[in-house]
Amino acid sequence: MAEENKKSGGISRRSFLKGLGGGVAGAATLSPTGLLSEETTKAILGPQAEMLSGSQKIQLKINGKTSSVTVEPRTTLLSALRNQLELTGSKEVCDRGQCGACTVNIDGKTQLSCMTLAVDARGKKITTVEGLAQGDELTAVQQAFVEKDALMCGFCTPGFVMSATALLKQNPSPNMDEIKKGVSGNLCRCGTYPKVFEAIDAAAKKMRKGG
């Protein structure tokens, strides 16, 4: 029997031997899908529990202001930014966390908006590339990217700018190795890297001088 089970796969030896049962779930009602019924879920979580399904309106704090978006649980933050708020500076490139073009800052850390659910971003402080400059006044990092030509087609550029900004906040005097590591999660296909490194170095120097 145990051998049989191994061959069919799917259930580990431990789970087979140990079995299941006991606890709250043991007594709980199962819905036809096998999942806990909504009623039981509420019983587990308490009456205040929030279970989201289908489309609904949520609030997101983006670039210092609160915005409403209508999302499903599966809607990514990137999709909400791009398709609902028209904050299209965060780019959809790989949509799998492999390129960094959708990098945003969430609660002080660079994160990938394509790998973040919009519902999971509620209550968090989100900064996108559109939230860096004060009006037309570019940040030192942005200015340096322009001056050093750290962009060609520009599609990866917002992601690089986000990573560079976070890097310099964490480490105001990075050496070349630290600069490269700081943007190693961002992919550029035009091959702009040398000028990106140069721009970050120049921005760091300028910011240290208080410029």
């Binding site: 996108t128 559109e130 860096l132 570019l138 322009v146």
Partner: peptide, 9 residues
Amino acid sequence: DGPLKVSGK
């Protein structure tokens, strides 16, 4: 167009 590209515009 650098300023437009670095600011996401």
